[in-house]
Design a binder for these strands. Sequence first.
DNA 1: GCCTTGCCTTAGAGTGGGTATAAGGGGTTA
DNA 2: TAACCCCTTATACCCACTCTAAGGCAAGGC
Lengths: 145, 145
Amino acid sequence: MTYTVQEVAKKMGLTTYTVRYYHDHGLLPYVKRDENNNRVFDDVDLEWVHLITCLRQTGMPLESIKHYFDLVIEGESTVPERYQIMLAQQQRTLDEISELNHHLETINKKVAHYADVLINAKPDTYEPSNIAATSDSEPDMVTKA
Amino acid sequence: MTYTVQEVAKKMGLTTYTVRYYHDHGLLPYVKRDENNNRVFDDVDLEWVHLITCLRQTGMPLESIKHYFDLVIEGESTVPERYQIMLAQQQRTLDEISELNHHLETINKKVAHYADVLINAKPDTYEPSNIAATSDSEPDMVTKA
DNA sequence: GCCTTGCCTTAGAGTGGGTATAAGGGGTTA
DNA sequence: TAACCCCTTATACCCACTCTAAGGCAAGGC
């Protein structure tokens, strides 16, 4: 099974620009060309694209992904370095998730606060007393002198 | 309590470049200047920086953050729109976390695979039989003709 | 036979969000 | 009076896309 740039992009949730960008930057070393010089991808190429997506979205720069791919191509002897790279990536991802969970709490509070303001506001449509009642410690309630 | 650019940067885990960048782009509308034209931040400004960081790291573009801040400044009447913005941001963050967890699984498998290769390789230091034994379906084991 | 459509190509410019450098000013310490 | 450190503005650079321009090739319709 082979695919065009466009099919790969659609399948992997990327733009055609991005797929070509990866190829042009040496991250898809096995992609072939047809008689019209069009890129021809197969299922293995798709797996590489998937791995790029995974590593990119967990914060690895393209240059590091390229380095890792070079190690994979180099063969078995590079497994120790590849192991260290993946361990680091695992930790980075765990950190990122925990940070996002922390930020999510902040956002949850905002949502709850606004929901509260909206419910309390409904009967009286922004009475001064209600405005005063909502002036808690939320940053957006502090409208500075 | 007031702070210099540098103190704010350190306190919030940003660079001075970034703090000035935010200020220059109108995201810190209340920051003052001293007699030498130096930026002077107070605790409320710090809360704004914190909120920028939270929204940025959960994927909101600076322009949208600015829009949200404009709504906050505009006052109580904008609460419905602010509520919608925060709801969207909440959902985006939940999606992002779930995606990261998915990617984490892929990375976990890599780590487990490499750990396995390393443990099996140790007694015999890359014997051909062990190399063959590890040729499972991992993408990086498919080294194409 | 040619024209539209629709995909592909390359080269190069633009964007977002920083990150850094250059060139210079102000104020404290020694 | 010089060293040091922080500040300023303006400008350039970086990554990872993202898009535009200009054009090639092939299939289908008139």
